[in-house]
């Protein structure tokens, strides 16, 4: 049977990709951020997950505002990265696993989560930046990927509670897969930041620290936050932290925190990275 070996949170901002392309990992501005990933890279190298379910959002590459699915899942044999107009280098294609994707779809649909199913899907920085932060891709990516896109662009967004519950259904679905596969789940985005309006540059360390603590011990409290509370306290774009709750829902009630790092700023954003492991 498949097993969830861990859950990882990570920022996905485009500036990271640009910094990596320029080789700025040791630059004093970036070093405290990139160093926070070394223990996770080592853990991945040791555990060697077969599949990564990546909860992310599309920023106008695969989806436009004509059709905005609240939750969309990839069921394609591969996912290509393309020019998205931000000046980020285009990264190598990632491999999918259609059988596993369709298993997840059937399982969570049976639990009344009505996903949009995508047999063709291009993936943007929201998915690719986390990939580049985790794995060396000089040859090819060492994992298969299932993209799970959450709408965090067009309001109304799904509630935090809905995301958490989807994660719980996803967790059950993964562990019911009848093939021995090691699965890691990523919750991407965040932490506090605001890209738009006169409040641009908003950072809230107190909220972020609270959020990281409760991700470990009390995710249900986070799932009760309203969208207005997110927008107000994490900044308008920080509200994408609801995607972390999908990942957290997929893990067991109690988890071990294996690693975390919090750093401000990277570009306009507070960055939090966490590695969680199921206790059962």
């Amino acid at each position: 049977m498949a097993k969830i070996v861990g859950g990882i949170t990570t920022s996905h901002i485009p500036a990271i990709g640009i910094a990596m392309a320029k080789g700025l990992q040791e630059d004093p501005y970036w070093k405290p951020f990139f160093d926070g990933y070394k223990p996770i890279q080592a853990w991945l190298e040791n555990v060697k997950p077969d599949i990564a379910v990546i909860v992310y959002n599309d920023h106008g590459l695969n989806f436009f505002l004509d059709t905005v699915p609240t939750f969309a899942i990839g069921a394609a044999p591969h996912y290509q990265n393309e020019d998205e107009g931000w000046g980020i280098p285009v990264l190598p294609t990632v491999q999918g696993n259609p059988e596993f994707s369709w298993h997840l779809i059937e399982s969570v649909m049976a639990e009344e989560f009505d996903l949009t199913m995508c047999q063709e899907m291009v993936v943007d920085h929201g998915l690719m930046i986390p990939m580049t932060l985790m794995w060396d891709h000089t040859k090819s990516w060492p994992v298969e990927v299932v993209p799970l896109a959450v709408n965090v662009v067009q309001h109304p967004l799904p509630t935090a509670q809905r995301c958490y519950k989807l994660g719980q259904a996803l967790g059950r679905a993964i562990e019911a897969y009848g093939e021995d596969k090691k699965v890691v789940v990523f919750g991407t985005g965040g932490m506090s930041h605001q890209l738009q309006g006169e409040r641009s540059g908003f950072i809230n360390k107190e909220f972020d620290r609270m959020f990281m603590d409760k991700m470990v011990d009390d995710p249900e409290a986070l799932a009760k936050l309203t969208m207005t509370e997110f927008l107000d306290q994490s900044g308008s774009e920080g509200a994408e932290l609801i995607m972390w709750l999908v990942m957290r829902g997929a893990l067991s009630e109690k988890v071990n925190l294996l690693h975390s790092n919090y750093h401000v700023p990277i570009s306009n954003t507070a960055a939090g990275v966490m590695l969680l492991e199921n206790t059962d």
Binding site: P14, A15, G60, W86, L195, Q196, S200, G201, N268
Partner: peptide, 26 residues
Amino acid sequence: GNIYYLAKFGGIYGMNSQSWGAQQTG
């Protein structure tokens, strides 16, 4: 305008989130 779509516009001029953040906050 949606900020993620405006980012594609700003990108044409080499603007990034810090340059448009600066512009919006004066």
